[in-house]
């Protein structure tokens, strides 16, 4: 069974650093952890599956609703801003984790690969060229009129007499959950809870991101063992 650990954090911004050979590496700075385990779900209880709930960033107790306050009180932890769930299907691993325990970035190592999940920047209502990478009009001259960025034909004629479901058109773009896979962890600063990740990460600055061990790398490692 694959155990896939992760943390919730905040995107700070991007910069560049130099490695030992002098190569310039573009990196995203993440404030990752410390996360507190707030709840543990196990297969044998009413939850029916193994998972932990982790929280990030302390919240003022005045801003907590009563039901949530009870939830935090049960775990004997301070209220948190962001709550995320991590599926852990391994009984022994779940046994090692306790409610109230703090998770830090030391679950990763420099050189590891991670998947980063965030909410992409909202782009508003966008046309088909930006939203679906359509090409627009073939021609900009010879009398082409008001058709430069159009999608072209959107269907047939009397049969079927309607537009097929799922036809790509203009509409709202961005502000959706996006995962970028296999990003390299360049540097970990446990004292400041700062992690540098090579490349870009979904979302705006100060948005919350979930960082988990790279699924594809874990799958490959487990298939090799067999």
């Amino acid at each position: 069974m694959i155990i896939r650990m992760g943390l919730v954090g905040k995107k700070v911004g991007m910069t560049q650093i130099f490695d030992a050979e002098g190569h310039c590496i573009p990196v995203t700075i993440l404030e990752l952890g410390p996360n507190t385990i707030i709840q543990k779900k196990t297969k044998n209880t009413k939850d029916g599956y193994g998972a932990i709930q982790i929280g990030f960033s302390e919240k003022d107790h005045k801003k907590v609703t009563k039901p949530m306050a009870g939830h935090f009180k049960a775990a004997k932890v301070k209220p948190q801003w962001v709550l995320r769930e991590l599926r852990i299907n391994d009984e022994t691993k779940l046994g090692e984790l306790e409610v109230g325990q703090e998770l830090k970035a030391d679950i990763f190592q420099e050189g590891d690969f991670v998947d980063v999940t965030g909410t992409s920047k909202g782009k508003g209502f966008q046309g088909v060229m930006k939203r679906h990478n359509m090409k627009g009009s073939k021609q900009a001259t010879h009398g082409t009129h008001e058709y430069f960025r159009h999608p072209g034909s959107i269907g047939c004629r009397t049969t079927p007499g309607r537009v097929m479901p799922g036809k790509r058109m203009g509409g709202h773009m961005g502000d959706e959950t996006v995962t970028t896979q296999n990003l390299k962890v360049v540097k970990i600063d446990l004292e400041k809870n700062i992690v540098l990740i090579q490349g870009a990460v979904p979302g705006a600055k100060n948005s919350y991101v979930m960082v988990r061990q790279a699924m594809k790398k874990l799958l490959r490692a487990s298939s090799k063992k067999k």
Partner: peptide, 11 residues
């Protein structure tokens, strides 16, 4: 800022 602190070690 956090970004400046990170960059500082590489300057």
């Amino acid at each position: 800022s956090v970004r400046e602190q990170v960059e500082k070690t590489y300057l």
